[in-house]
Design a protein around this nucleic acid. Structure first.
Lengths: 153, 153
DNA sequence: GAAGATTGATCGATCAATCTTC
DNA sequence: GAAGATTGATCGATCAATCTTC
């Protein structure tokens, strides 16, 4: 049996490349980060959100809103970070349902080093390959495709 | 404490958009496919590889080489497909270590319907938003970034 | 000893259910 | 009853170890 596809070659090529590039980049960045710093890409993003937040603290909901995660996923991830002493949790005074996740000194220090590492790797794997014009183009294309997919995309 | 980042705004924007766009598209495509056809995106890719293969069969290694998966991941995925009767396994005559995965009639029929669905969704979410020139640009950028990351990227 | 494939243990995420406070 | 957060069960993947054939 033979299959007749409904995408043309260029479309199939773009789609496969897009998916594979993301997978490969994620794999490499995550691997390096785990090997050198003992945390994954997702953990780094949590630390980053906390590092730029006012007082270095955020509620679970705020974290979940800025991540690709479900609420329960965020809970588990923060559990792990807490176990390693990178963050701690604290009740929210004005709303007894809420919990803050707070970046510790240890967490901040680790974040800074991990961020440097990550940004270097990202430069090598991604940004060094594009000039300013190409970067602008890329951004425009991503915006175009992401349009209407949800607020922050 | 305050964090000084080493990426400029445009770079950070591109990277976040790239990762999020991929995550969101994957999530939606996978969800739709699961709801309508009971298989995920990865399973569809296996069925696709088999559908375009000679005699509709491939060895585990061939599958693994064309997927983002590890060998054991492929084994488990094919296990599931076999349980649902979409593929079956058979020994390789010339090499007793090897196993073929063979697309069944049921698997092919399901693949055809799933592929139609998937391609339609992909059109709506992705290709309809780009004209020919933009598609070419996108492809060029992906190639550029993927250069030197591994053969097929 | 290497290559092809699988298995057992584990990891990191989701979903649905639950608990508490609003 | 809804919102914030967590928990128990499960899913889909990986890794390291293993088995068989080369």
């Amino acid at each position: 049996v033979k299959h007749k596809s409904l995408l043309n070659d260029e479309q199939r090529s773009v789609w496969r490349r897009f998916m594979r590039l993301q997978a490969e980049l994620t794999r490499r960045l995550d691997e390096e980060l785990r090997a050198e710093m003992g945390i994954g890409l997702n953990a780094l993003e949590v630390l980053w959100l906390l590092a730029i937040a006012r007082s270095n603290k955020l509620r679970m909901t705020d974290l979940a809103d800025h991540l690709v995660f479900t609420r329960s996923g965020v809970t588990r991830l923060v559990d792990r970070l807490e176990r390693e002493g990178l963050v701690l949790r604290e009740n929210v005074d004005e709303d007894l349902r809420g919990r803050y996740t707070i970046l510790t000194r240890k967490g901040f220090d680790l974040f800074e080093e991990a961020a440097r590492l990550h940004v270097d790797a990202l430069g090598e794997l991604f940004f060094d390959k594009l000039d300013t014009r190409q970067l602008k183009q890329f951004n425009a294309l991503l915006c175009r495709v992401g349009e209407g997919l949800g607020e922050s995309y």
